[in-house]
Amino acid sequence: MNNYKIEKKQSFRIISFKTLLDEGTSIHTPQYSIKKTTFFKSVLDNGQMASLRPYSEGPYGYAAVAIEDGHVYYYAGVQSSKLLPEHTDEVLFPAGEYLILSGSGGLSRLAFDKLENQAFGSLLTEEYDYEFEYSGGPIAEVLLNGNPMDAEVEVWVPVQKRKAT
């Protein structure tokens, strides 16, 4: 089964709350999983995610991983072009091509981790004969069905044509 495709996306933005992922400097590492889960659960439990709902311009929940000033951050929020609420951050996703990986069933964190591992562990490696490579931008984790216990998810990885070596 082919669970991935390349799709052109317009630029978009998520408004969010963020936390530092201090376990590494790479955009993707399995050590981030527990901290991502803990952080996302905390913004749900303390009502921060609910405070962003009025700003949301779509039905999906978003998270992102981005490198900022040499540090890796994890964001939890909603897609929005509205004014940035106080005490929140934003992640800007440029227009361009994205590797879209899809999965469903089970816990959302496990599904996201599986898809990100597929992207960075096989598809976007030098060993795999794939025409695209990671472009360096933020990665989006999208909860499509609103149910983190039996999730339908996508991971959007910005890509560019692989450079000839």
Rank of each mutant, 00 (worst) to 15 (best):
T38P: 15
T38N: 15
F39G: 11
F39P: 15
K41Q: 15
K41A: 11
K41G: 13
S42W: 02
S42K: 08
V43Q: 04
L44T: 10
N46L: 00
G47V: 06
M49C: 13
M49F: 07
A50F: 14
A50H: 12
A50S: 08
S51G: 14
L52D: 02
L52N: 03
P54C: 10
P54G: 07
Y55I: 11
Y55D: 09
Y55K: 14
Y55Q: 10
S56Y: 09
S56W: 10
E57I: 04
E57Y: 03
G58Q: 04
P59V: 12
P59W: 07
P59Y: 05
Y60H: 08
Y60G: 12
G61A: 10
G61R: 09
G61F: 06
Y62T: 00
Y62F: 00
A63R: 09
A63H: 01
A64C: 07
A64T: 09
A64P: 07
V65I: 10
V65N: 06
A66S: 00
A66Q: 01
A66V: 00
A66N: 00
I67T: 06
I67R: 13
D69A: 11
D69Q: 12
D69V: 06
D69F: 05
G70L: 03
G70R: 03
G70W: 00
H71R: 09
V72D: 03
V72I: 05
V72Q: 12
V72T: 11
Y73H: 00
Y73S: 02
Y73V: 02
Y74I: 06
Y75F: 14
Y75P: 11
A76Y: 04
G77S: 05
V78A: 09
V78C: 07
V78H: 02
Q79C: 05
S80P: 03
S80K: 02
S80A: 04
S81M: 02
K82E: 07
K82F: 13
L83C: 14
L84N: 00
L84K: 01
L84H: 04
L84M: 00
P85G: 10
P85K: 15
P85T: 12
P85V: 13
P85E: 15
E86Y: 14
E86P: 15
E86T: 09
E86W: 09
E86L: 04
H87D: 14
D89I: 13
D89V: 07
D89Q: 13
E90T: 02
E90V: 13
E90D: 09
V91A: 04
F93M: 01
P94D: 12
P94S: 14
A95N: 10
Y98Q: 14
Y98E: 15
L99K: 12
I100E: 15
L101Q: 12
L101I: 13
G103M: 03
S104C: 06
S104W: 08
G105K: 10
G105L: 13
G105Q: 05
G105V: 01
G105A: 01
G105I: 03
G105H: 09
G106H: 02
G106D: 01
G106E: 00
L107G: 11
R109Y: 10
R109K: 12
L110F: 05
A111L: 07
F112P: 07
F112C: 14
F112K: 04
D113Y: 12
D113K: 05
D113R: 03
K114H: 15
K114Y: 09
L115Y: 01
L115D: 00
L115G: 08
L115T: 01
L115V: 03
E116Q: 03
N117F: 06
N117R: 04
N117I: 03
N117V: 06
